[in-house]
Design a protein around this nucleic acid. Structure first.
Lengths: 339, 339
DNA sequence: TTGAAAGCGATACCAG
DNA sequence: CTGGTATCGCTTTCAA
């Protein structure tokens, strides 16, 4: 550990004791006043003196000390990896607003480059009262136990599949691949490529999407073929060059961004969309509507935006209930011009 | 405040005292062993006993208690607003990695819907040892003082302009508008539109970009005209409909995403790009290269990615130095086909 | 080499 | 109505 110097310019941080001294009361009284504690009655002049003293000193309560004393924090931890794709980002904003309204402190913890078990430990050091694990971040059953044992009252995962021991709001990514392929099948396509992004961290999405695509195709005897692709022009060009050899009549491009990349490469290679090959993305981004032909896509909706905050609050107050798993994701294919 | 029940399923969180008891040593010894304290020599068998006990109990240290005792945390706070645009996101990842390597805990604090002074207080409650305020989040001089008085050793802003009292890594967004307009002027354009996104939270970027555009144009007597635009197809279509009346021969579209939106609308309205109107974006996203014509853009680079972590560490160890301001942003126009 | 004990800041009991 | 005080988990000085 590095030692920090104690002397230089040590700005004295005002504590509740300082407020008490300035107001001429005890620290207990300060606490009562500043927390509006209603079980004890404090005279109005005293209240005012305390509040003025706090203001004058610029007193800010010390969250760590408070939660140490209380035995639990008000921190809801939200580990983050890569930046959240759009449907999720909105969901987080809602969740944060909801939790803030219930007086929780939402804290995001950047998880880049930490192994699954390390990170659970790192989260646990902060003693969060609840943890919400988004898709793309892995939480092992062991990690769940570490969190629970460190005092977390609610551990909630949002992911392709439930984690034992944790409450799960399952976002079954297989539905995305399923919707895309069903849409293509309905339009008479039979030989379907599925783009597999090679970017690290996307496998936990792309694998289940592929699985869902396969499942949908199996029933009909259609053919599904995974297509590795980097998010680079070059990679797309190479894929497009060997397109005719692949003999595919449709492709599900993982999402709209990859779809745009691929569409451009295919068009530059003289492939007609949707004539030769139908193309479907996912996410329903605005940019898809700007392409020519307009991009067909899979729209995703997350049920329960605001209620999740309340669910967490409920779990915090009544922990120990058996883990529940709810399905969160609704998908629907949106037909435009590319399929 | 809500009262949490104490009884139900209260999982006893293991403390260092529990570890000590199980290992048959004192809490002091546990602390020495687990922190690899080198100023004191503990026998190897004891060390092993302690470590095994910690492992067996699943002991995780309590960060709040630790920093309470230490008098300062290892938390670097990174308030966030809307999701970071791409050049910044990468910068944050680097910063986080660097700080983690120096044994800091980087914590993001979602700031959606908080007034400037409220938020400074909220941040201060966490007693961060340093705060890095990204562009788009406002920090007042008063807020800076609150943070410093609450023990923050380093307050660093990344923004269009420096904040008094805080160290600043200035990202002068005027440079972006300046580069774009200079590029257009160099290619003989004289009547230049500047897209102003109407989305909330973007004004702190778009206003200085417009100012930079104006400054660049002034010297040459060229004309600059702000063009309000929502990030919606409809809005772009309406703008395109009155395009010929505007009599502009060029437009700086704020960034690549807005540029794409506008390009499509203009093309659908029969405007030739770059023949009738030159178009420049910003951010150098991949999608710009996929457009036809390929999109000219302003590339932004942030100097000092890794070193910032070290700068923060230095400030933490030697606080009280006079606020410094460094210019962080480098911009350059990238000519492709749309201008 | 190990242990006892003080104390960081805030809160909530119990007396006065 | 207000004040003293024990306590949360951890680190670190001082003694043994």
């Amino acid at each position: 550990m590095s030692q920090l110097p104690k002397q230089p310019a040590e700005v004295s941080v005002p504590t509740s004791a300082d407020v008490a001294r300035l107001a001429g009361v005890s620290r207990a009284t300060v606490s009562y006043v500043l927390n509006n504690n209603s079980t004890v009655r404090i005279s109005e002049p005293t209240r005012r003196r305390v509040r003025e003293a706090a203001l004058q000193l610029g007193y800010v309560p010390h969250a760590a000390a408070r939660s140490l004393r209380a035995g639990h924090s008000r921190v809801v931890l939200l580990p983050t990896g890569r930046l959240p794709e759009e449907p999720l980002h909105h969901f987080f904003q809602e969740l944060q607003a909801g939790l803030r309204g219930l007086d929780y402190t939402v804290v995001q913890y950047g998880n880049a480059g930490l192994a699954a078990d390390e990170s659970a430990r790192a989260w646990a050091e902060l003693r969060p009262v609840a943890v919400v694990v988004p898709p793309g971040i892995t939480l092992s059953p062991h990690g769940t136990e570490v969190l629970i044992r460190s005092g977390a009252r609610a551990v909630i995962t949002l992911g392709p599949e439930p984690v034992p021991g944790a409450h799960g709001l399952v976002m079954d990514q297989r539905l995305v691949g399923g919707s895309a392929v069903e849409h293509l099948l309905a339009r008479g396509r039979r030989r379907i490529g599925v783009v597999m992004p090679q970017e690290p961290g996307l496998a936990s999405f792309s694998e289940p999407r592929l699985a869902g695509a396969r499942r949908a195709a199996e029933r009909t005897g259609a053919h599904v073929r995974p297509l590795p692709l980097h998010y680079e022009e070059q990679s797309a060009t190479r894929l497009a060059e060997r397109w005719r050899d692949l003999r595919l009549d449709a492709v599900f491009a993982y999402n709209d961004a990859y779809a745009m990349l691929l569409m451009r490469a295919l068009q530059d290679a003289g492939i007609d969309i949707p004539g030769d090959t139908a193309l479907v993305g996912a996410d329903d981004l605005l940019l898809g509507r700007l392409l020519r032909p307009r991009l067909s896509t899979v729209r995703m909706e997350l049920a329960i935006p605001q209620p999740l905050a309340e669910t967490i609050d409920r779990l915090v107050h009544h922990p120990g209930s058996a883990p529940e798993h709810h399905d969160l994701l609704r998908t629907s294919a949106v037909h435009r011009e590319s399929s």
